[in-house]
Simulated assay, not measured.
Amino acid sequence: MARMSPLFRRKADPRDRFVTLVRKPGCHLCDDAQAVVEKVCGDLGVPWEQKDITEDRQLHDEYWEQIPVVLVDGRQHTFWRVDEGRLRKELTE
């Protein structure tokens, strides 16, 4: 099946995306990441959730050394520091 050229592809509606912030209590980087996620998702109307790594063994095993972690549509977007412009771009392209 032929892939459509990016020139003809319609941009996805950011409201159809979903962001997950994987964090832990008492983490200042997690607080910083949450502020960025809240701002970008709020601006774009993107639904988001946060998950506590201390309450989910699978998330703990996968991401413990990387938190905070931001997932977009279930795929890892970034970790440690969340860049507002990069997240905004990811959600609007």
Results as ranks from 00 to 15, higher is better:
Ala2Cys: 15
Ala2Glu: 15
Arg3Asp: 15
Met4Arg: 15
Pro6Gly: 07
Pro6Glu: 07
Pro6Tyr: 08
Leu7Tyr: 14
Phe8Trp: 14
Arg9Pro: 09
Arg10Tyr: 01
Lys11Gly: 10
Asp13Thr: 03
Asp13Ser: 07
Arg15Tyr: 13
Arg15Met: 04
Asp16Thr: 11
Asp16Cys: 05
Asp16Tyr: 10
Arg17Pro: 02
Phe18Ser: 10
Val19Ser: 05
Leu21Met: 09
Val22Asp: 00
Val22Ser: 00
Arg23Asn: 12
Arg23Leu: 12
Lys24Gln: 14
Pro25Gln: 13
Cys27Val: 06
Cys27Tyr: 08
Cys27Lys: 08
Cys27Ala: 11
Leu29Ala: 00
Leu29Trp: 01
Asp31Met: 08
Asp31Thr: 09
Asp32Arg: 12
Ala33Gly: 06
Gln34Gly: 14
Gln34Arg: 14
Ala35Asn: 05
Val36Leu: 10
Val36His: 05
Glu38Leu: 12
Glu38Gly: 12
Glu38His: 11
Glu38Pro: 13
Lys39Cys: 08
Val40Ile: 15
Val40Met: 09
Cys41Arg: 05
Gly42Lys: 05
Gly42Met: 08
Asp43Met: 03
Leu44Thr: 00
Leu44Cys: 00
Leu44Asn: 00
Gly45Phe: 01
Gly45Met: 02
Gly45Val: 04
Val46Lys: 11
Pro47Val: 03
Trp48Lys: 01
Trp48Arg: 02
Trp48Leu: 03
Trp48Asn: 04
Glu49Leu: 07
Gln50Pro: 06
Gln50Val: 03
Gln50Met: 11
Lys51Tyr: 06
Asp52Val: 02
Asp52Gln: 13
Ile53Ser: 07
Glu55Cys: 05
Glu55Phe: 05
Arg57Ser: 04
Arg57Gln: 11
Gln58Met: 13
His60Phe: 08
Asp61Ser: 02
Tyr63Ile: 02
Trp64Gly: 08
Trp64Gln: 14
Glu65Gln: 12
Glu65Ile: 02
Gln66Cys: 08
Gln66Gly: 02
Gln66Tyr: 12
Pro68Ser: 09
Pro68Tyr: 02
Val69Lys: 08
Val69Phe: 12
Val70Leu: 03
Asp73Phe: 01
Gln76Tyr: 00
Gln76His: 07
His77Ser: 05
His77Gly: 01
Thr78Leu: 06
Thr78Trp: 07
Trp80Ile: 13
Trp80Cys: 07
Val82Lys: 12
Asp83Ala: 10
Glu84His: 09
Glu84Ala: 05
Gly85His: 08
Gly85Leu: 03
Gly85Ser: 10
Gly85Met: 01
Gly85Lys: 07
Leu87Thr: 03
Arg88His: 10
Arg88Asn: 02
Arg88Cys: 09
Glu90Thr: 14
Glu90Asn: 13
Leu91Val: 01
Leu91Cys: 01
Leu91Ile: 04
Thr92Phe: 07
Thr92Tyr: 01
Glu93Leu: 08
Glu93His: 05
